[in-house]
Simulated scan of single mutants.
Amino acid sequence: MMNILKKCFSKTLYFRRMELKLNQEKMAEKCCLSPRQYTDLENGKRLPSFRSLINIIINGRIDLNLFIEEIIKAGYAPEDSVGK
């Protein structure tokens, strides 16, 4: 399931960056990330920390509804960890 999240988040970042007509370096700056951190996120190598996620959502104006639609289409299902 983690791979689905990485893939969908990277896709969301890429398409948002294209909408803004920014290169990766400018998008990283906008989201308060190093260029390396941003590149790793956009390439699906990692997921952001909670603080980075908030910066990306707010500064990059990421539509969370679109991200959620992407992960649902990709087959993501929340794991029920209650009682485990």
Score class of each variant (00 low, 15 high):
residue 47 L to E: 01
residue 59 N to V: 04
residue 47 L to W: 02
residue 37 Q to S: 04
residue 63 D to W: 07
residue 62 I to M: 10
residue 45 K to R: 15
residue 50 F to W: 04
residue 61 R to Q: 13
residue 36 R to V: 11
residue 44 G to F: 08
residue 38 Y to A: 10
residue 50 F to Q: 14
residue 35 P to Q: 06
residue 45 K to A: 15
residue 40 D to M: 14
residue 35 P to Y: 10
residue 61 R to S: 15
residue 60 G to H: 08
residue 50 F to V: 11
residue 38 Y to L: 09
residue 58 I to A: 10
residue 35 P to A: 05
residue 58 I to N: 03
residue 47 L to V: 05
residue 50 F to C: 05
residue 61 R to E: 15
residue 34 S to M: 13
residue 63 D to S: 10
residue 45 K to S: 07
residue 60 G to S: 10
residue 49 S to R: 08
residue 34 S to P: 12
residue 54 I to C: 03
residue 61 R to G: 13
residue 63 D to H: 09
residue 36 R to Q: 11
residue 44 G to V: 14
residue 39 T to I: 14
residue 34 S to Q: 07
residue 45 K to P: 06
residue 45 K to M: 09
residue 39 T to A: 12
residue 51 R to E: 10
residue 35 P to G: 02
residue 57 I to A: 13
residue 41 L to R: 12
residue 41 L to E: 02
residue 56 I to M: 00
residue 39 T to Q: 08
residue 58 I to Y: 10
residue 38 Y to C: 06
residue 43 N to Q: 15
residue 62 I to K: 01
residue 62 I to H: 00
residue 47 L to Y: 14
residue 63 D to V: 09
residue 36 R to M: 13
residue 51 R to H: 13
residue 44 G to E: 08
residue 39 T to G: 12
residue 47 L to H: 06
residue 51 R to Y: 12
residue 49 S to I: 00
residue 36 R to Y: 09
residue 44 G to P: 14
residue 52 S to R: 00
residue 51 R to Q: 05
residue 53 L to D: 08
residue 46 R to I: 07
residue 53 L to E: 01
residue 45 K to I: 14
residue 46 R to G: 11
residue 55 N to R: 02
residue 57 I to S: 12
residue 59 N to D: 13
residue 41 L to N: 04
residue 61 R to W: 01
residue 35 P to N: 08
residue 34 S to D: 13
residue 54 I to S: 03
residue 46 R to C: 09
residue 50 F to K: 07
residue 55 N to M: 03
residue 55 N to Y: 02
residue 61 R to M: 04
residue 45 K to G: 15
residue 42 E to S: 06
residue 34 S to A: 01
residue 51 R to A: 09
residue 34 S to L: 11
residue 63 D to N: 12
residue 42 E to W: 05
residue 35 P to D: 04
residue 61 R to D: 15
residue 48 P to Y: 02
residue 59 N to Q: 14
residue 37 Q to L: 06
residue 62 I to E: 00
residue 44 G to N: 11
residue 43 N to T: 14
